[in-house]
């Protein structure tokens, strides 16, 4: 038996529209989840370093729950169990939502990734000299302002390389959303294969999508890293210093 390649069929309907829509879904699912994950991750990471025991405990609890349960299982829990816990009229609203699986994926991906980012933020904050906190407070900044203007910007710069990895991971983790019915690129590749028996072509498109977006992210983050680079910190200085 010989496999006959038919790359041209990727440009035929309905496959072409499916692919374009799926790539778009993958991108905004990842980007939206990423923005939420960063925001939540920074907040939780800061909580884990505050003097308040209650906040530290809450932060630790969050991290341990969300990073110790497999993402796949978390998606199932959000899809099947979470709506059951909602009050009645919210439940009705949620069930009537057309793209409930999409929003489920956003919640699942962002909360899972946030736990990982929180750990990185926490370790970055621990690496900041204690004098920075004292200096910021001594100039009359409130603790919130201290984190907002000094500690978090400093911490994020320290962990840009690690954050880049998380950014790449969230793109690839969107593939898991196919299990809860989101039409992202992996699930559409599977569907194309089922319809046309052209698995190699379909999965090649899916793989290429991930590779291209992640390379774009690497380039982007390289640029961000250069812009946010703190002179005299992290990177070894060349002889110009």
């Amino acid at each position: 038996m010989r496999y006959e390649f038919r790359w041209g069929m990727l440009l035929e309907q309905p496959y072409f529209t499916w692919i374009v829509d799926a790539i778009a879904t993958t991108l905004h699912l990842a980007l939206l989840s990423w923005i939420l994950a960063l925001a939540i991750g920074i907040a939780v990471g800061v909580m884990r370093n505050t003097p308040s025991r209650a906040l530290r405990f809450a932060g630790a609890l969050y991290v341990e729950i969300f990073r110790n349960v497999p993402l796949l299982l978390q998606l199932f829990l959000w899809l099947y169990v979470f709506p059951e816990l909602l009050p009645k009229h919210w439940q009705l609203y949620w069930n009537r939502l057309d793209d409930a699986p999409y929003w489920t994926a956003v919640i699942g991906l962002s909360l899972f990734t946030a736990a990982r980012i929180a750990e990185q933020i926490r370790s970055a904050i621990l690496a900041i000299p204690p004098g920075q906190f004292k200096a910021a407070l001594s100039t009359g900044l409130t603790p919130f302002q201290m984190y907002r203007y000094v500690i978090v910007p400093y911490a994020v710069r320290i962990i840009i390389p690690a954050i880049t990895s998380e950014f790449l991971t969230i793109f690839k983790n969107t593939a898991l959303a196919l299990t809860i019915g989101v039409a992202e690129i992996s699930s559409v590749a599977r569907k194309i294969e089922a319809w046309s028996f052209k698995g190699i072509e379909a999965y090649t498109v899916a793989s290429a999508t991930y590779v291209c977006t992640t390379i774009a992210v690497i380039v982007l983050m390289g640029w961000v890293e250069k812009r946010a680079y703190i002179p005299g910190l992290i990177k070894r200085e060349k002889s110009d210093a």
Partner: peptide
């Protein structure tokens, strides 16, 4: 924070914010 505005403090290890320019260090507070 208000009380601290009245008390300037200088540290052994300077503790300038490394990610801000000197001017931004001074204007932040």
């Amino acid at each position: 924070p208000k009380l601290r505005l009245g008390v300037g403090m200088v540290f052994q290890h300077f503790e300038l914010y490394p990610h801000l320019s000197v001017l931004d260090n001074v204007t932040l507070a």
